[in-house]
């Protein structure tokens, strides 16, 4: 594993809102093809981490590098062009367009065609969009209005959009929230397969521990903004501190998950 290049390196990432330390001195690395889970209770600072990684949010201090290049404080669109795709905790897509068009926009953007006023978008990257939709199992829905999709399908569409620029790093904030248990497993299997095939590094958060332990190569545990444990699923499972503050409440996972999904 150590021969694989470091894809993402994070050093001392910190962010606070007024008196709330949302994220405190978080450091970790992620290698190409690796699937890394970032877990922690509600309000632990996971989304805040994601927002800083893709440029949505500017850290108070700390450094972020993607393949050695500094991305700290850069705009999301710039970071996206460096090969970082992301999905949101509350899925963000374009509801007034068809499913295919949603992916086409991302492809057009990847092809630097955004200021083309003349061509017809319908013909641009049509097949490529179809291929991506097939990949996430949404091919049959290509011509459907995105606004009519079930939430689980919106999440899959979001994944297709995030894959449009052939990312090297995929950031997925609760990719399976709001899905039925069977769908969850399917989506994560799919993500894992794509990641291995294309050697994409994946950082994801998840409240469903089954999903986490099944798919993550490594797990980071965040609590009140601080990393309290890091290691393989077995190590994390065995960590007493994690058990105390996190797994000890294991019975609550499902209830909490439902909360997160409806929020």
């Amino acid at each position: 594993m150590s021969m694989v290049p470091t894809l993402l390196s994070v050093e001392g990432l910190t962010k606070s809102y007024g008196g709330v330390h949302a994220v405190r001195g978080v450091s970790f690395e992620l290698r190409a093809g690796e699937i890394l889970a970032l877990i922690g209770p509600n309000g632990a600072g996971k989304s805040t981490c994601f927002d800083m990684l893709n440029g949505q949010n500017i850290p108070d201090s700390g450094r972020i590098r993607v393949l050695g290049a500094e991305t700290t404080g850069k705009k999301p669109r710039v970071i996206w062009r460096m090969g970082v795709g992301r999905t949101f905790q509350i899925a963000a897509t374009f509801p007034t367009m068809t499913v295919r068009e949603n992916v086409q926009v991302a492809l057009v953007s990847h092809g630097a065609q955004l200021f083309n006023l003349w061509a017809s978008t319908a013909r641009q990257a049509r097949d490529e969009a179809g291929r991506l939709l097939d990949l996430v199992g949404m091919g049959a829905y290509a011509e459907r209005p995105c606004g009519e999709l079930a939430y689980g399908d919106v999440k899959r569409l979001e994944l297709a959009i995030a894959l449009a620029n052939q990312p090297k790093l995929l950031l997925m904030d609760e990719p399976t929230a709001g899905m039925a248990p069977r769908e969850r497993v399917e989506l994560m299997r799919l993500t894992a397969r794509i990641a291995r095939e294309q050697s994409i590094g994946v950082l994801f958060t998840e409240h469903d521990m089954d999903v986490v332990f099944e798919h993550a190569d490594r797990i980071l545990v965040l609590n009140r903004g601080t990393l309290i444990a890091e290691g393989s699923p077995e190590e994390v499972r065995g960590n007493t501190q994690v058990r105390a503050i996190y797994l000890g409440e294991g019975l609550l996972y499902d209830a909490r998950h439902r909360e997160g999904a409806s929020a």
Binding site: R77, G85, F88, T93, F94, T96, A106, S109, H110, L114
Partner: peptide
């Protein structure tokens, strides 16, 4: 023609979800 051009799509995308638009490289 502009509505259905890539620019028109980018414009509608920004209208629909500035967040998602920015996250796929749209200024």
């Amino acid at each position: 023609i502009i509505v259905f051009s890539p620019f028109g799509f980018a414009l509608r995308a920004t209208r629909d979800s500035p967040l998602r638009g920015e996250a796929i490289g749209i200024n």
